[in-house]
């Protein structure tokens, strides 16, 4: 009974919230600030031509720096939670599935490289590319071609942290330009591509790691 009234209470609160929020949204006029204009105006100096990438890695690159930190941190926290356990031996899947893996993974890598390269001028970028790469690793793991992680060794830890460390180093190095992450317009494109490449590798490793760390006990 108590539980029932709690449900009713929460649901009615939620409905009321949606009602008022919806009404308030409808009342809204035009915004005082329109960021599209400055985004477009500085696109030439940003080093990329795709506005979302410009926002992500240049205008608000600091957000992205911290975001990568969050991701690395999540992996770290998971490591701390699950502790060390020997990875169980991988059980190979049926050859048909393995064939799929062998077929799909190179394609995924190609797509990832394409997305990374496309990021500068059209939708795509390090994160999407990294996610696709990570998916490739997950696929390989699922069909039994890639073992789960028992614990990341030095090389792997280095790879996991490299993208973030590179980003951090570039961000700090650019302090010489006057402030954190202040790209000189001439070098912006190259630097962003450099950062994105590093991030792609590390993001792929981290995202794959999220799965590979967790699923190691799955096959027991």
């Amino acid at each position: 009974m108590k539980r029932y009234s709690l449900v009713v209470l929460v649901l009615s609160l939620a409905s009321a919230f949606v009602f008022f929020l919806g009404r308030a949204m409808l009342e809204l006029g035009p915004t005082a600030i329109d960021l599209r204009a400055p985004v477009a105006a500085h696109l030439a100096e940003s080093g990329v031509t795709h506005p979302v990438t410009a926002v992500l890695l240049n205008y608000r690159g600091y957000d992205t720096l911290l975001e990568i930190a969050v991701l690395l941190l999540a992996l770290l926290a998971i490591l701390a939670v699950v502790g060390e356990a020997p990875a169980s031996p991988t059980r190979a899947a049926h050859p048909v599935l393995q064939a799929l893996g062998r077929l799909a993974v190179p394609l995924m890598v190609v797509v990832a490289v394409y997305l990374l390269w496309a990021g500068a001028f059209r939708p795509g970028g390090a994160f999407q590319a990294g996610a696709v790469l990570a998916a490739a690793a997950v696929l390989l793991h699922l069909v039994g071609l890639l073992p789960g992680w028992s614990k990341p060794r030095l090389g792997l830890r280095f790879g996991l942290a490299a993208g973030f460390a590179l980003f951090l180093a570039v961000a700090a190095g650019l302090l010489t330009q006057g402030s954190l992450l202040q790209y000189p317009p001439a070098a912006a494109g190259v630097l962003i591509l450099l950062i994105e490449s590093g991030l792609t590798v590390s993001l792929a490793l981290i995202l794959a790691g999220l799965f590979l760390l967790l699923s190691r006990e799955a096959e027991a």
Partner: peptide
């Protein structure tokens, strides 16, 4: 009208959400 700034923010947000989800699952 397309506004790239919130789109970039959401990309950031999705990464954070994935991170949180993975940690929660762990």
């Amino acid at each position: 009208v397309v506004d790239p700034v919130p789109q970039a923010m959401v990309l950031t947000g999705i990464v954070v959400a994935v991170a949180a989800t993975a940690l929660a699952l762990a």
